[in-house]
């Protein structure tokens, strides 16, 4: 393919690196940007920069936030004796969507995966243990239903149980391979309701 615009090529290459975007979609997106008005494109670029500048990790739960601590950690309406542990911030969004859960969260920032070189030190595990020692009654482990999520659940349960609190996992209501992020609200609600003691 003979390219007539290195700038367009560069944009296509950028889009291609995004998750879930193939080369063809990247081309479509880039051509779409080309057709937008300059103001519109400027606004989009600004939105990208704003996200990078304003959004950070909550120092308590590691969820993404603009205020530190985040709105969930500081909310008086939240049940503070309950912490739900998830892999990513997107999982918090999925559970919040159901409006069922009233406790706090802890975002690990991934899951154990020796194949990808991810070990316990690469996750927010120590900060979870610190929080668990401060008046928490129950910790719900809500990892994704795959082998890595399962191993992470077992690993955390082993660390948490000696602390003398209730450790549960969400019910295996999620079909294998369906990440929390993509499960529908009813499925997530049922999985949270039917949690199992570890």
């Amino acid at each position: 393919m003979l390219s007539t615009s290195p700038s367009l090529d560069a944009l296509v290459a950028r889009f291609s690196r995004l998750p879930g975007i193939g080369r063809k979609t990247a081309q479509r997106l880039a051509l779409h940007i080309l057709k937008l008005g300059t103001e519109e494109v400027r606004a989009m670029a600004q939105a990208l920069l704003d996200v990078k500048e304003n959004v950070r990790e909550c120092s308590i739960c590691r969820n993404i936030t603009e205020e530190d601590p985040c709105a969930i950690c500081t909310s008086p309406k939240r049940e503070r004796r309950l912490i739900c542990v998830v892999e990513e911030s997107t999982d918090v969004l999925a559970i919040e969507r159901t409006n069922e859960y009233k406790g706090l969260y802890h975002v690990l920032g991934g899951r154990l995966s020796p194949l990808e070189g991810v070990g316990p030190d690469d996750l927010h595990i120590q900060s979870l243990l610190d929080r668990a020692a401060q008046g928490v009654e129950e910790i719900i482990l809500a990892m994704n239903p795959n082998v890595e999520g399962e191993a992470t659940t077992l690993y955390l349960a082993r660390l948490l149980k000696p602390l003398g609190l209730r450790v549960t996992r969400i019910a295996r209501g999620l079909p294998v391979g369906t990440d929390l992020e993509y499960a529908d609200n009813d499925t997530i609600s049922r999985a949270l309701e039917g949690r199992i003691a570890l």
């Binding site: 070990g119 316990p120 082998v147 191993a151 077992l154 690993y155 082993r158």
Partner: peptide, 10 residues
């Protein structure tokens, strides 16, 4: 050993 344990159980 600690890191292997969950994998061994699975």
């Amino acid at each position: 050993r600690t890191e292997l344990e969950p994998w061994d159980r699975a």
